[in-house]
Design a protein around this nucleic acid. Sequence first.
DNA 1: ATGACCTAACTTTTAGGA
Length: 262
Amino acid sequence: MRIATWNVNSIKQRVGHLVAFLDEAKPDVVCLQELKCQDDGFPRAEIEAAGYAGETLGQKAYNGVALLVRAPLTLGEVRRGLPGDENDEQARYIEGLVTGEGTAPVRVASIYLPNGNPVDSPKYPYKLAFMERLRRHARDLMMHEEAIVLAGDYNVIPEADDASDPDAWRDDALFLPRTRTAFRALLAEGFTEALRACDPKPGLYTFWDYQAGAWNRNAGIRIDHLLLSPQAADRLVSASVQKRLRGLEKPSDHVPVTVELT
DNA sequence: ATGACCTAACTTTTAGGA
């Protein structure tokens, strides 16, 4: 089973690239982030024509996440939003159970973790609180001893090797010690970070800013991750970054990351 | 050396991103 995560930075702007990616890579499951539209604006017809069914959690203008599954796989037990804050209006979490004839089930989440900048604003405590809610929910999921993949844009640079210029990120919400500690606390619930496990070399990036010629200078960071429960990690075959998509016309600033499970 | 972008929205400027 092939599972991909991609922050598309507006699904309406990126549906052409998405359908091309679906046709070429044929992922079984796709986790999307930053839809930037409401559920009724999601380009369902084009995606269904490509052979995929989807569940979305959208909101106006900002955020928004989705799960796509390739027929004949099906998506059940869909959860929208993380437990722990009934007042949270931001569309940043959707989860479901992917099943199919002759396929071992996998529980998959699409996560758009808050950016958290500026650090001296309420946005940073919101980020840390979201990470703690995610950790607690992940701990609850672990009790079921299932194959779980928590995938998405974590807005966390885990290590200095995951940035071309780590000093530039020293005081940023994506790289502050508290942020990285919270990410390690999530991993410590028993998750394996798939790309790191498969390809531990430095300089593997998933995001290049639109500004300052970041792509041409390869001034990237690695912030999109797939976290595997032990039952999923046992099935891990490979992980890869679809770097080529950053070089297309009108690209997202993120590229897809894909894992292959048996 | 410096500056350099993109998206959505009650749009001609702002908020948000990272």
